[in-house]
Amino acid sequence: MQAPTTTGAPNLNKTLGERRALRSAILSGGTWIVALIASIPLFSVLYMLVVKGGARLSTVLFTELPPAGFELGGGFGNAIVGTLVMVGIAALISIPIGILAATFLAELGPTSKLAAITRFLAKVLTGFPSILAGVFVYAAVVLTMGGYSAIAGGIALSVLMLPTVILTAEEAMKMVPRKMKDAALGMGCTRAQTIWKVTLPTALPGILTGVILGIARVAGESAPLLFTALFSNYWLSSLREPTASLSILIYNFSSMPFDNQIELAWAASLVLVLIVLVFNVLSRLLGKPKA
């Protein structure tokens, strides 16, 4: 190393001639390539959905029943109804419990032992394999009710939806400024009144984001429905009967040797992805002010 000469400022520019700078440039180039490769799958999936699924898209799909074996045509109206009904049941179960639990975690006992354990288990449950929700509900509901049903399917989905609702609702309630809650309490509100009149309304957009995210997550699930709701080729007539869903229809049809069924599987995939994406975009729009 030479001692710096006294004349002029040192040269701070890096040129590619230097080994270190060259290495950095090559790594940067590599990162661009890797990042672009990582975005290929999404576009490939969307392209296939639009091309293969879009080809069959028509109103018939929404009004007719799934075709059997060699039949041509048909649709999956019952599967769309089934998916919506079961997601609805899941939402009815997990939204009240989830928001109440989140209220406890965020407001009433944030530092208590119970809250710490609940929060930890909710986080662990977000990584809970969805198939195990199916196994659990099979043991707990299907065996006791004596058969596959939309109710069992909905309960299985609610197990998966619950942690998402709890964790996002807790975050949303924690974002409500302390001052607002203190002001309400100072006016003589009880804790419950503060929560109902100040915290919950203020945190509503954030809570909705979580709820819709939870719905988006379970709408595409199939593993928990495989042996709780099973499948049905007929319209939903009772919540206590086997029920069709879009995801199970895709799973069943994907392994069939008939072109008609494969085409329907693609069309059902397109509809399912559209449903899931709509919910995702909704939750993003609602969650925007936060970011």
Partner: peptide, 9 residues
């Protein structure tokens, strides 16, 4: 957000 079955297909 893409469902598992769709990835399977």
């Amino acid at each position: 957000a893409i469902p598992s079955v769709v990835f399977g297909l």
